[in-house]
């Protein structure tokens, strides 16, 4: 079976004026389908940079990246956009919903970039996704009319609508209170249980217990890569 993610010796350097920062230093990583990977580590260790590279919103300085067996480096901007639209779902810490679009429009937005569907079909898929996250009665609300937890659930629905091979979550609970954080992590666990591959960046130890594999990073390198079995109980418990 093809791995969802394969990183070979990935490096990322930032150069600002006279200061060079090595954010990632020779990262090798393989993520198999159906894994729920939590990437953790202190601030500035390079976990968000790694997630950005995984999500094709940033480019490595060196190294190779394969997504579902397809080469994902040295691609044009449009080719990367195509992969993002069809194979990746994003969940951000700050939700990143578009304030001038209502919940339904926000969720169906990725489909408009994929194309090939009627408005009715897109709306139906968006409603289904929203029903999955329990927001079916909020479809005409604007982001500002929702609570933080609801906004993040809408963002999860948006990440799911294109049936992605990979869901990337960058501190998804970072802006939420504990109740809403539980709900969102529960949702991610359900998606994992349903066979989705998830990579989540977090520095919350509690959140990592939902993952099937925990990668700890320090100074741009992987310090520890540990599979854990206890996560199943969390799913059941949720």
């Amino acid at each position: 079976m093809n791995s969802v993610i394969q990183l070979n010796n990935i490096e990322k350097r930032f150069q600002t004026d006279e200061i060079a920062t090595q954010a990632l230093d020779g990262i090798n990583l393989v993520v198999e389908p159906g894994e729920f990977v939590a990437i953790t580590g202190p601030s500035g260790c390079g976990k968000s940079t790694l997630l950005s590279i995984l999500g094709l919103i940033d480019e490595p300085s060196n190294g190779e990246y394969f997504i579902s067996g397809n080469q994902a480096f040295n691609l044009s901007s449009d080719e990367r956009a195509h992969i993002r639209a069809n194979h990746i779902g994003f969940i951000f810490q700050a939700f990143n919903l578009i304030s001038d679009l209502n919940v339904l429009e926000n969720v169906m937005l990725p489909l408009t970039y994929i194309g090939g569907m009627s408005q009715k079909e897109m709306e139906q898929k968006a409603k289904d996704a929203l029903a999955m996250v329990g927001l079916e009665n909020r479809i005409n609300h604007f982001p500002s009319q929702l609570s933080g937890g609801q906004q993040q659930r809408a963002a999860v629905a948006r990440a799911l609508i294109n049936s992605p091979d990979l869901i990337l979550a960058d501190e998804p609970t970072g802006n939420l209170d504990s109740n809403n954080a539980q709900q969102v992590l529960g949702l991610l666990s359900e998606l994992h249980a349903a066979g989705k591959t998830i990579c989540m960046v977090t520095h919350d130890i509690e959140s990592t217990t939902y993952a099937s594999r925990v990668i700890s990073m320090l100074d741009g390198t992987i310090l520890r890569d540990k599979k854990q079995l206890e996560h199943a109980s969390k799913v059941v418990g949720a």
Binding site: R84, L97, P110
Partner: peptide
């Protein structure tokens, strides 16, 4: 955000 969820430059 649009670009991150798949919008091409055009």
């Amino acid at each position: 955000i649009r670009a991150a969820i798949g919008a091409k430059k055009l």
